[in-house]
Write a protein that binds this DNA or RNA. Structure first.
Lengths: 153, 153
DNA sequence: TATTGTTATACTCTATAACTATA
DNA sequence: TATAGTTATAGAGTATAACAATA
């Protein structure tokens, strides 16, 4: 029996947003918590990880832009970027025209450690997902896309 | 067009656990982050919230049991329970037979604040969910159950 | 001796405020 | 004056180690 069938919803029932919100919130928070706990042995912190991913996906950015995108204050981003710089995962280069700005970019070592961290962080989930039925995997795949869209770019 | 149709997977494709794991992890972490950020104005901290929810769902428990279930160390749980006790949201009672143990239980005020926090924390998500198609809501509902099962009770 | 819980202490991450340098 | 970034400092939250009380 598929896990999805534990749902008490028939195909014709309309789903109340309030009820779904509570269910989904619980599921998301619980899963994210496990993902955080199971991601042991990482060489970089969660904050460093998301900054590397951001730089990898969107190219070099100023410190301020990074802070805004990560929703942290400037001093916090200074700290994160300093740590990444010391480890050789990002470089800081002065802006050609504006001497106040600093461009932060990911290095090859940074890309490598990002990939490594991504695998470590995904290993636990991949194992769990492998134990599901194909139907359940399809549902999760679609749900992932819906959630991505819903949570905003 | 439904958001689910942005998925590039046909009905007959088998879904690779590794690929799904990366998609799902990204979606879950991004959503949980938004949920955390959007849950402003809470009267209790996230740690306090989960402890109250735990006590509400499973009844009075010892400090050690709570620490294990929340995956934190004993001193951290002492701190959380102290804060909840000072606010009047839990009570501490001595174990009748074993003088070492402390039973922690939720109060009526604790139940009230839990319900209030739950609504605050779910409001943002409920609004987002309300803007989806009914099909998408069905998928999310099933996905929530699958994730709950997958992340362990 | 083993177990439950507390206290002491330190570390990480984040924030606000004050400061420097550049525009 | 305004903006980009850094430094100083403080406040959560968590951890380990040492301790007290009980079994």
């Amino acid at each position: 029996m598929s896990i999805t069938e534990t749902s008490n919803l028939g195909p014709r029932d309309s789903i109340k947003p309030d009820v779904l919100a509570i269910d989904l919130r619980t599921a998301v928070m619980r899963t994210s918590r496990r993902l955080r706990v199971e991601a042991t042995g990482d060489v970089i912190t969660p904050g460093q990880y998301t900054v590397l991913a951001q730089l990898n996906a969107n190219g070099p950015q100023t410190l301020r832009t990074l802070a805004e995108r990560e929703h942290v204050q400037a001093p916090s981003m200074t700290r994160i970027v300093n740590a990444l710089t010391e480890q050789g995962f990002v470089t800081r280069t002065a802006h050609p025209n504006d001497g106040r700005q600093v461009q932060v970019g990911i290095t090859l070592a940074g890309k490598a450690v990002l990939e490594e961290a991504r695998e470590q962080r995904t290993a636990w989930l991949a194992q769990r997902v492998a134990g599901l039925s194909d139907d359940d995997r399809k549902i999760l795949s679609r749900a992932a896309h819906i959630m991505q869209e819903m949570a905003g770019k």
